[in-house]
Design a binder for these strands. Structure first.
Lengths: 343, 343
DNA sequence: GTGAAAGCGCTAACAT
DNA sequence: ATGTTAGCGCTTTCAC
């Protein structure tokens, strides 16, 4: 059934050389004569030889495997991160171990444990940075490099790749301002969210920069479950009819806001109209590219570029693998503005 | 830096026995005296011994690793499948290799190749069944079990886990019928989609079962990009005002349909009103649990239960690993209806 | 019941 | 420039 596994010995026999020679040819290390090298290559082709990873690793080489600890692959942002990571690693002929720490998962630390047991060359911790220090300690003890990828800022002293939430908010807000809006509210996000805090920073900074008002009452929290945003937005707009634009924290909030606008008797659109009061309310929202359910809505979106975060995390980890003693760095990935024709 | 790796030899020394004994105790195989076993266990605890996977695998044991080939982890359905798979495997102290075949990935076959090189115990092919036969052949040649997990039916002769699209459509349609709707249209999906075909089967069957009309003009395709569904739905409703309910193919289509209903001067709601013409139009849609952006809409959703598909695929693969010669089976996973209070 | 020893496939000294 | 050989950590006959 299973075809006889062909090993380095078979190749050596077939080429009439020793295993050392074959090994040297494969790794391109020693000085081997062109003729011999050619004969060996030919034997490799003929037999379809593929080096056995476990043997290499056992002997002390690299396993070629990277471990990923992610809270929940179903979260669109982290799904993008995972995809980006996987892309880069595949291009390097490496593979990715996936473990989940959240939901039904076994927790970051246990995940790390099981990855280390498998002999990974490096670990990416995506989200769940609460247990970051524990994981770092464990990885350090095993001499395995660790890189974090998260939605918001966190620990010092660790390699971390994250989106630029502040810039994202500046882009979104700036876009609305450029369209002529002067009364802008921020909708959604849980009060304790670090991501929200960073975005609010960019939001306020942009308003200040243009001399526009920002009022605490115009920053509406959503609970974690994001229920009833439509009602909250409707109430906001009825109370402050001068508001002409909303920055929305995520896809669910955006949709809620959309209905809130309609329920308040206003329309959703882009360009701010003349005069103080406009029946139009413009929307800008954050979200991943994969959140395409909202693609048809007339709104401007800013993506946190999760895929790019994943790619960068992979790059950084590969660097760390080659150079374990490098100083930890924070990499910030620029967001992407996807403007929508007003309408 | 790196703490000395402790091996089976260290344990043997510490316990004053031979490596054979330690191995036997760990695997629980040979007949070892309780005293010796206890001493060994104690040594294992004391030293924190963890068997080296590569050594075990090299020696001929199982690697404890399962490979997953998925087209795109960012697709909500396959993200759920991945999560379900990962859950089950983690519970079994196994780990999951993730490879992507689509997008920037290297194609199913190359992914399979790289998984086999890593010595996986089994492979799950999720989606992209076009290349299923190739992958199967390759896996079979390596003596590695293969299980497919896909959104729709496909090849014969392979183990396959998939959602019950037909039942899903029956649930959605039946729900609308139970609410009193008699004129129901099906919106969205690409014409060549197998999933759509299966759902349409369930849709039509349900209508027939209740003696309700089904008309080809009431089955509106969306392109692959799902643009302009709002306009299509508006046109449909204006042309056939007797329609009171829509079954929507996915989240994006549902949202488009929602606006189509509004644009047609109708409202979205649940209960069918008296009389032939109702201003209300009810919506039922398909989607994963993770598609929660639409959670606030007053509509009934049917989930394909991707997570459960993943779990089942894992179960089946574990069976195949224990019993490689079993006959291929098709497993069908029941969908989940999430009813919404009509509003 | 327990131990000695032979490899699994590979790499890296150390010869030659 | 190429070959010999000693392990990496483990399981598994086969002795005792």
């Amino acid at each position: 059934m299973t075809p006889k596994k062909i090993t380095i010995n078979d190749v050596a026999d077939h080429a009439g050389v020793s295993v050392t020679t074959v090994s040297l040819v494969v790794s391109g290390k020693g000085r081997i004569s062109p003729q011999t090298a050619a004969r060996v290559q030919q034997a490799i082709q003929a037999l379809g030889y593929v080096p056995n990873r476990q043997a290499v690793t056992l002997r002390g080489g690299r396993s070629g495997v990277i471990g990923l600890i992610v809270r929940d692959v179903c979260d669109p942002f982290y799904a993008e991160v995972t995809a980006g990571l996987s892309e880069v690693l595949e291009a390097q002929a490496r593979v990715l171990f996936l473990t989940q720490s959240g939901r039904e998962g076994l927790g970051s630390l246990r995940a790390a444990e099981s990855l280390l047991k498998q002999g990974v060359d490096g670990i990416v911790l995506a989200g769940n940075l609460l247990h970051g220090p524990d994981v770092r300690q464990r990885a350090a003890a095993a001499g395995v490099p660790l890189v974090c990828a998260a939605r918001a800022n966190a620990l010092e002293g660790m390699d971390l790749v994250r989106p630029d939430n502040q810039l994202a908010a500046r882009l979104a807000t700036g876009h609305l301002v450029a369209e002529g809006h002067k009364q802008i509210a921020y909708i959604g996000g849980a009060g304790h969210s670090l991501t929200r805090a960073e975005r609010l920073g960019g939001f306020c900074a942009t308003l200040l920069q243009y001399g526009l008002p920002f009022r605490p009452e115009w920053m509406v929290e959503s609970g974690v479950h994001r229920h009833g945003m439509a009602a909250k937005v409707e109430a906001l707009l009825r109370r402050y009819p001068q508001i002409t634009a909303l920055v929305c924290h995520d896809a669910a909030v955006t949709l809620g806001a959309y209905f809130g606008v309609l329920n308040a008797g206003r329309n959703v659109g882009g360009q701010a109209l003349e005069g103080l009061y406009s029946p139009q309310v413009a929307l800008a929202g954050f979200g991943e590219d994969a959140d395409d359910a909202l693609a048809e809505l007339p709104l401007t979106r800013v993506s946190a570029a999760g895929r790019e975060v994943g790619r960068s995390a992979a790059e950084r980890l590969l660097q760390r693998i080659d150079n374990p003693d490098a100083t930890p760095q924070q990499w910030v990935v620029a967001p992407v503005l996807i403007a929508r024709a007003p309408g």
